[in-house]
Computed example of a mutant assay.
Amino acid sequence: MRRLARPALPVLVCVGLLTACGTRQDAAEGPRDPDAASRLRVAAAAEATGQSDIALSLYAAAASAEPANPEAQARFTRALMRAGNLAEAEAVLDRARRRAPDNATLLELLGRLRLRAGAPEAALAPFDQVLAASPSHAGALDGRGVALDMLGRHAEAQDSYRAALAASPAAIAPANNLGLSLLLSGRAEEARAILMPLSRRPGAPPRVATNLLLARAAAGETEAQRQLLGDGATRAELELLLRELGARGLATGDAAP
């Protein structure tokens, strides 16, 4: 008998297989719809391989199949936020919160949405609500720090990021945001000391390298200044760039892992 080679199946094919997997009894009864957990796992795999459209579709299906599942609703909301569909993300989150108004994950997402909308003062309330019940919630501490930074309250923000790191030492987001906060408060050398090793960590997002470049430039490194603004850049131009990119990075930063 000729031996058949086993093909490598991309995530796209695996999506189709979700409804076909099961026991012999399942096969006799016909294919079953995948549960939300299965869809979420495949959606995460699709997203990791750059298939964001497929991932978004799977997150939507999981959320639709289990409207009372806060995790499914949260994952769909995050995917919509990453895609820039903030109005739809807000609608999904509003529906989810009507079912689970005190859910910590959904409250944190509400704060993140308000940050994206440029409303840091309003974002503090849901973060504080989470922290009242769970003072060491790393995501809420990180989000609260971002809100405080956007309000210009850098020292308080840095305390919040450090508390997030104490709760979750391996988290990249609060470490990155702490470095950016130090940079925005004029402490470029300290920012560089945090961001340099962070940029070498596996899984560090590109914004960490961008923030490190900003910190190096602010610390007086000529090559970093040239990379950012070209030859002959003035200090005023550098400070303007720091403010603009810093504010944008804070507003769009992801939650702590």
Results as ranks from 00 to 15, higher is better:
T105K: 13
A79I: 02
D142L: 00
A171Q: 14
A100H: 13
N103S: 15
R114S: 02
L151F: 03
E108I: 10
L151Y: 05
F127V: 01
G111Q: 13
S160K: 02
A147W: 04
L113Q: 09
I172G: 13
P169I: 03
S136E: 10
L113K: 02
M81C: 14
A140V: 06
P169A: 09
A133P: 14
S168L: 03
A117P: 01
R98I: 10
A140K: 05
A100V: 03
R162F: 03
A100F: 04
F127G: 03
G111N: 14
A100E: 08
A166N: 11
M81T: 12
L151E: 12
L131E: 03
A171E: 12
S168A: 11
A170F: 07
E88C: 03
M81I: 13
R99C: 06
G111E: 14
A155E: 14
L131S: 04
E121V: 04
I172N: 11
A167F: 01
D149M: 06
G111M: 14
Q158R: 07
D128S: 13
L86V: 08
A147D: 11
A125F: 02
Q158M: 11
G145K: 04
A171L: 07
A157Q: 06
D128V: 15
R112D: 14
R153Y: 10
R97M: 15
A167L: 05
R153Q: 15
P169E: 10
P135Q: 06
P126W: 00
V130S: 02
R112H: 08
G152R: 07
L148E: 14
M81G: 15
R95Q: 11
L148A: 11
R144S: 12
